[in-house]
Amino acid sequence: MKKIMVGLKRVVDYNVRIRVKPDGSGVITDGVKMSINPFDEIALEEALRIKERGEAEEVIAVSIGPADAQQQLRTGLAMGADRAILVQTDKLVEPLDAARTLLKLIEKESPELVIVGKQAIDDDNGQTGAMLAALWDRPQGTCVSEVTFADGKATVTREVDSGLETIEVDLPAVLTADLRLNEPRYVKLPDIMKAKRKPLETVSLDDLGIALDPQLEIVKTDPPAQRQKGVMVEDVDGLISALKDKGLL
């Protein structure tokens, strides 16, 4: 393979305790730690490992988001991506528009493989990878926990509800990374310094000829329903009688 393209979304870090704004207009993102979506980090790690095995020549990290998403792309470069492209916009980009945008970049870069996370941990939509594969008219391997390549084909192991499923797809293809695909590396300080000199190109949606077409209006954001406070029991006997009281044993 010559090129692998990886999508990196800037999201609220998974350790941040999410708080809904009192007026229901969204969640509080001011001043909270932002990171690469964990699944996208796994996607990038896999691309880097494929390259390090000598099976690809270049890894391009791309992000669609605000100017600050440069931070996540810089982290991606420090992990080992060769160059980065930021499609800069302050607007909310729905998965279908993200897929349309990524397709434009694919048309420019002609990668043989695109890897994105299976879902982003902010909107939890889990759509972009499969949508991109559909628009590109190419195969998809979603929820991937293992992948190998031979003869222009990928053999993909997918984590499905009933176990592990293997499929074979022709390249080019889109894969979406699941948690157990790999464990991403930590970036070291010298890599961060080196990454500063790697190319990071910024383009606009206009440059790519994309007009956003939002289809879902977010009317309101609420905190989840709270469960009633429970009881603490002292020992196993207490537990058994509490369960019997509820008719559960």
């Binding site: 609220v12 305790r17 999410i18 809904v20 969640v27 941990i121 902010d122 909107d123 939890d124 977010i218 009317v219 309101k220 954001t221 609420d222 905190p223 989840p224």
Partner: peptide, 8 residues
């Protein structure tokens, strides 16, 4: 969304 920490 957000692992069920918010409902839209």
């Amino acid at each position: 969304v957000y692992a069920g920490e918010a409902i839209v």
